[in-house]
């Protein structure tokens, strides 16, 4: 039997506590973002380098040499870049979140800080980097003279869904990484395979129909295709979840997977949280 009771002389209301958590998440995320490019001459531009380098190589190889997208994809550069930016957000955010607890073990052992704030602030930094990268997509949209439309507002819940999925996986991975350093290797391998397993550089119609049905249950694939449907323009019959699986109701499956992952992540992390400080 054990318990720790803290009765506060000046009771601190819930709002105070929430305010504190939000301030810490925001400030730590901003500092982390600053730190990432501290001492580099062009700073944030570097975060654009990775998607643009991938983009250049894949564009040349697939469209110029292999001619794979063919007539299936109308605007291949935009199609490719949109997929890449979302894929890199997914991969980088999870990698950063996974390492976050171990990297800040010294802080956790010296301060009574709710451990949850650490992965949350780190994934916010990743989201900021994603916003910088999204500028590349905006530039390409402008080049192609694509006019913004009202239904682009749907991008917000779509990115939100992806963020929920990222946070869920990231929370589980960050707590697991404290005990098993293999998690980093597994994730590195998985992220390499994922770029091929996900229709990022090729059209989804290239996959066998059976495989398409399975692939669309992944929140990452569903979000990438829905974002493309909104801003790039796809053949809704063959290239979106509704078209492939026959009904819009199927969208509930990847959305539920994303939300369930977040819930499992939060529960798992909270269960481990009291022992994280002594384990790292």
């Amino acid at each position: 039997m054990s318990s720790t009771a803290y009765s506060l002389a000046k009771p601190s209301p819930r709002a105070d506590r929430l305010g504190y958590c939000l301030r810490v998440i925001r400030t730590a995320a901003a500092m982390e973002f600053k730190l990432k490019y501290a001492g580099s001459a062009v700073g944030y531009v570097w975060s654009l380098a990775r998607p643009l380098a991938y983009f250049a190589v894949l564009w040349v190889v697939f469209e110029r040499f292999l001619r794979i997208p063919g007539p299936a994809v109308e605007n291949y550069p935009l199609y490719l870049l949109t997929g890449l930016v979302l894929y890199l957000f997914f991969i980088d955010a999870i990698s950063m979140t996974m390492m976050s607890i171990v990297a800040r073990g010294a802080l956790l052992r010296r301060m009574a800080l709710p451990p949850l704030l650490i992965p949350l602030s780190v994934s916010l930094t990743a989201a900021l980097t994603f916003c910088v990268n999204a500028v590349a997509v905006v530039v390409l949209l402008a080049v192609h003279r694509v006019r913004p439309e009202l239904d682009w507002l749907l991008l917000i819940p779509l990115v939100g869904e992806l963020l929920a999925f990222i946070l869920g996986i990231g929370l589980i991975a960050s707590a697991l990484y404290v005990r098993f350093r293999d998690v980093a290797q597994i994730w590195e391998l998985a992220s390499q395979l994922l770029i091929f397993a996900t229709p990022i550089m090729y059209p989804v119609t290239l996959l066998p129909p059976r495989v398409q049905e399975v692939v669309f249950l992944s929140p990452l694939v569903q979000v990438i295709q829905d974002v493309r449907l909104l801003i790039v323009g796809l053949n809704a019959e063959t290239e979106t979840l509704a078209g492939v699986l026959g009904s819009d109701a199927w969208r509930l499956v990847p959305v539920s997977i994303a939300l369930a992952t977040l819930v499992v992540g939060l529960v798992y992390f909270r269960r481990d949280a009291p022992r994280l400080a002594e384990r790292v």
């Binding site: 009771a5 803290y6 002389a9 802080l107 010296r110 009291p274």
Partner: peptide, 30 residues
């Protein structure tokens, strides 16, 4: 409240300072 005890009770009345060492949270690059 940084470590959880295996058994026993702690009763704290008042606001605890959140740190136990100085310089917690410092980042030398900033």
């Amino acid at each position: 409240g940084i470590y959880a005890q295996d058994s026993g009770t702690v009763d704290v009345r008042g606001r605890l300072s959140p740190f136990i060492e100085l310089g917690v949270g410092f980042n030398l690059e900033l």
